[in-house]
């Protein structure tokens, strides 16, 4: 089971945080700080895994963003790299060649996509098509509501 996922930039700015374990806020901040500094200090030729406390850290850099996951001892670290890659692919499909700015300005969308891929730290859907379909349908639902709201506001409905 994945314990948490963090996205942060090369400057160490947090871009997304998803916690599947109940940590107090202070602990979350401490963990984030520790991992960001540790990972940013690692050289590119080092491997993507870290042994950290009682869990394993798997991270990978895509362009200017680091994707970092904590998994349990029994979990497959190579598969976690695949999960990260799958998430990146989904972001890429959704935004159309995604960049860090997309994730900054549409951070909520990035969360929504992750929530269609993982639940409770485990993968729920292995088909990219299904994930994107679910996201698109929900976006549509939101748009319809917006139109409906506007119409109602100006008295057309």
């Amino acid at each position: 089971m994945m314990l948490f996922m963090l996205l942060f930039s090369r400057q160490g700015k947090l871009r997304l945080q998803k916690w599947y374990m109940a940590y107090p806020d202070k602990v979350k901040k401490k963990i984030t700080r520790e991992l960001v500094t540790t990972i940013l200090a690692r050289k590119p030729k080092m491997c993507s895994f870290l042994e950290w406390k009682d869990c394993k850290i798997v991270y990978k850099r895509y362009a200017s963003l680091y994707f970092c996951c904590a998994i349990e001892q029994n979990d497959n670290e190579l598969l976690t790299l695949e999960i990260i890659h799958r998430y990146v692919e989904l972001l890429d499909k959704y935004f159309g060649s995604v960049c860090e700015l997309d994730i900054i300005f549409n951070f909520e969308k990035a969360y929504f996509i992750l929530d269609e891929l993982l639940i409770g730290g485990e993968i729920q859907e292995t088909s990219k098509k299904n994930v994107l379909k679910a996201i698109a349908s929900q976006d549509l639902l939101q748009e319809d509501e917006a139109v409906e709201g506007t119409l109602r506001d100006i008295g057309l409905l």
Partner: peptide, 19 residues
């Protein structure tokens, strides 16, 4: 009742609520 509200509301709940 709005889905948009719920979507953001639950996102906020997941990020801000502790136990």
């Amino acid at each position: 009742t709005r889905f948009t509200d719920k979507r953001i509301g639950y996102l906020g709940a997941m990020l801000l609520l502790d136990e």
